[in-house]
Computed example of a mutant assay.
Amino acid sequence: MKTCSKFFIGIDVSKPYFDASLLCVIDQQKQQIQTLRFENSIQGLKEFHKWLKKHKVTMNENTLLVIENTGIYHRLLWAFCCEKNLPIHIGNAAHIKWSFGIARGKSDRVDSIRLCQYAYRNAEELKSSSILDPVLLQIQDLMASRRRLVSQLKSNEVYLNELKNISNIDNRLILERLHRDAIKGISNSISKIETLLKKIVSENEKIKKNYDLLISVPGIGHLTAIYIICCTCNFACRRSGKQLASYAGVVPFEHSSGISIKGRNRVSNMANKELKKMLHLCALSAIQFYPEFKCYFERKTGEGKHKMSVINAIRNKIVLRAAAVVIKQMPYISKYNVLA
């Protein structure tokens, strides 16, 4: 009689190394969890592959590997799984941590065992992450670099403004000149990144198609469209509008408990703050330049709604429209313009 074997792997990734835990389930009988540490390098992945072969791990749907999203540290492992056709689930760190319940003690080895057990318990619900796309990774890295440079630019501009309080004029002029040179250099770097982003988007047919659909939505501009594509892996994860809105932190949730807590509905603090900030600017732009949103804003504020509550509703509308145009593969057409 043929035995049925399933394998569940949990890996805790750090910069220098990763800890792997392996649970074999043979004919629905759990075996002892095996653990081992490997270097987070090409050589370490070769050793990891040998370790998997030693335990007769199959590289197919009978195996599931779970890791937390670590930004860049898990990329080698992600590429390895894509190359070997090993199903991998890259999970949200906070969501996975809360699923452990009350957990006492912490170490890399213990965390890998917990991830392994998480994979076993939730195997039916966990979806494999999309295949590693080098173009999307390049765009993500460029967007992250631009974000850092913009932060540095604002910091230098603020300091340059504060230099006006220095009484020593000669010293102030020297510092102003130095900071203006720095601001000019940072501004040039930001411009080069934005030019490169446009070039990459225009040269990739799949990304360009979704990009054109996104910028057809009122309020969404060049950078916001690219960032949404990054967050959704060019919508490979098939996020619905409601899921994307929740991820962006623009969905209000009920806040009440019995008779002691009766607060108004509020958005969750668990959100992609960068995307939320971009959507806020999109909403302000939509209110200013698009009659559809301008009329909605004026009507709701006239009814006594709080200004920020209405702006959040517009952010939500923009996200829902963004997801809809990509899912339907049709550009946005405003009914307001059609009726007008």
Rank of each mutant, 00 (worst) to 15 (best):
M1S: 07
S5E: 12
K6V: 03
I9M: 01
D12H: 08
K15M: 11
F18V: 03
F18E: 00
S21R: 00
L23Q: 01
L23F: 11
V25M: 06
Q29H: 08
N40E: 02
Q43L: 11
G44Y: 08
G44N: 05
L45D: 00
L45S: 01
K46A: 04
H49M: 01
K56A: 15
K56E: 13
M59V: 10
V66P: 00
E68P: 09
I72M: 12
R75Y: 12
L77Y: 04
C81I: 09
P87C: 06
H95W: 07
H95E: 11
I96T: 10
K97S: 14
S99L: 07
F100R: 09
I102S: 09
A103N: 12
G105C: 03
S107L: 05
I113H: 00
D133T: 04
V135G: 09
L136R: 15
L136F: 13
Q138R: 15
I139D: 13
E157R: 10
L160T: 15
L160A: 12
N161D: 07
N165A: 14
N165C: 05
N165H: 07
S167G: 00
N171L: 14
D181R: 11
I186N: 02
I190V: 14
I193S: 09
K198T: 14
K206G: 11
K208E: 15
K208D: 12
D212C: 15
I220N: 08
I220G: 07
L223A: 01
I226L: 14
Y227P: 08
I229P: 02
C230F: 08
A236H: 14
C237H: 13
Q243E: 14
L244G: 07
A245T: 06
S246V: 13
P252A: 03
H255A: 10
S257H: 02
I259G: 00
I261Y: 09
V267A: 06
S268E: 06
N269V: 00
L275N: 02
L279A: 04
A283I: 12
F289V: 09
E292G: 07
C295R: 08
F297R: 01
R299W: 09
K300I: 10
G302T: 03
G304V: 04
K305Y: 13
I311D: 02
N312E: 05
N312H: 08
V319P: 04
L320Y: 11
I327M: 08
L339W: 06
L339M: 07
L339K: 06
